[in-house]
């Protein structure tokens, strides 16, 4: 009806290909971080010091891909001057990339905490609480990556509710650390608390990813609070 030409079609297809490449790249980035988060959690729970170097090294690939995707997003923003859903997607994806990259750093922080606690054997109650937290946090992060892969606008509100469980498990973990603090000693108790905080933050990033997807698809945030405006205490 409005006189499209083959050239126009081609340019539009190129644009859509670029958007799809960015989205698929972000899903890949998310899966790399998910893998490293699981590996770090597993290393903590099973005291696998031998895994630390590999976890730290794996983050290089995350950072490299992050920079590549961010550059591509900016380039598409500049050259295509997107509007409406395309604009929401590109703005949201730059935030999502950041959320994923930060989560990757937090997985590395977990591994480094393990290194600092070298040789310490944790009481089973502490390990049990840690294992539950690791599992819940990784599961929420997987949900965030799925939301991105499926562009699932319903995930934002759902993951926000599921995050309450992670907060509860984190609180329970802190309680265990407190109860065993004399056996653990102060430096280990502090490191474990930090690990709890890292895992809790990874889950928060997952919620933010899913909420950004809700925004891309619907144009509205899942709840009226703009998550970008919530304070970030990392």
């Amino acid at each position: 009806m409005t006189g499209t030409t083959p050239e126009h079609e081609e340019i539009r297809h190129h644009f859509e290909d670029q958007l799809d490449a960015i989205r698929r790249g972000a899903v890949h980035l998310g899966s790399l971080v998910l893998e490293n988060t699981k590996r770090a959690g597993d290393a903590l729970v099973h005291n696998r010091l031998d895994q630390v170097a590999e976890i730290v090294r794996a983050d290089d690939a995350v950072n490299e891909l992050y920079e590549e995707l961010e550059t591509l997003s900016f380039e598409v923003l500049a050259r295509q001057q997107p509007v409406a859903r395309d604009l929401r997607f590109l703005v949201a994806i730059t935030r999502i990339l950041y959320e994923i990259e930060r989560s990757g750093d937090l997985a590395v922080n977990c591994a480094k905490a393990l290194q600092r606690m070298e040789g310490v054997t944790l009481p089973p109650e502490v390990t049990g609480a840690l294992e539950r937290l690791v599992h819940a946090s990784a599961s929420l992060f997987a949900g965030g990556v799925d939301a991105l892969a499926d562009m699932d606008e319903t995930a934002g509100a759902r993951l926000d509710r599921e995050d309450d469980l992670v907060d509860e498990l984190c609180g329970a973990f802190y309680t265990r650390i407190g109860a065993q603090s004399e056996i653990l000693g102060l430096p280990v108790a502090i490191d474990l608390s930090r690990v709890g905080r890292y895992l809790e933050r990874i889950a928060d990033h997952a919620v933010n990813i899913a909420e950004n997807i809700t925004y891309v698809v619907t144009g509205d945030w899942p709840h009226e609070i703009d998550v970008a405006l919530e304070p970030r205490n990392e």
Binding site: T4, E9, P82, A84
Partner: peptide, 10 residues
Amino acid sequence: TEDYITGRFG
């Protein structure tokens, strides 16, 4: 409107 402003017309 979305289709037009995002160039997905035709």
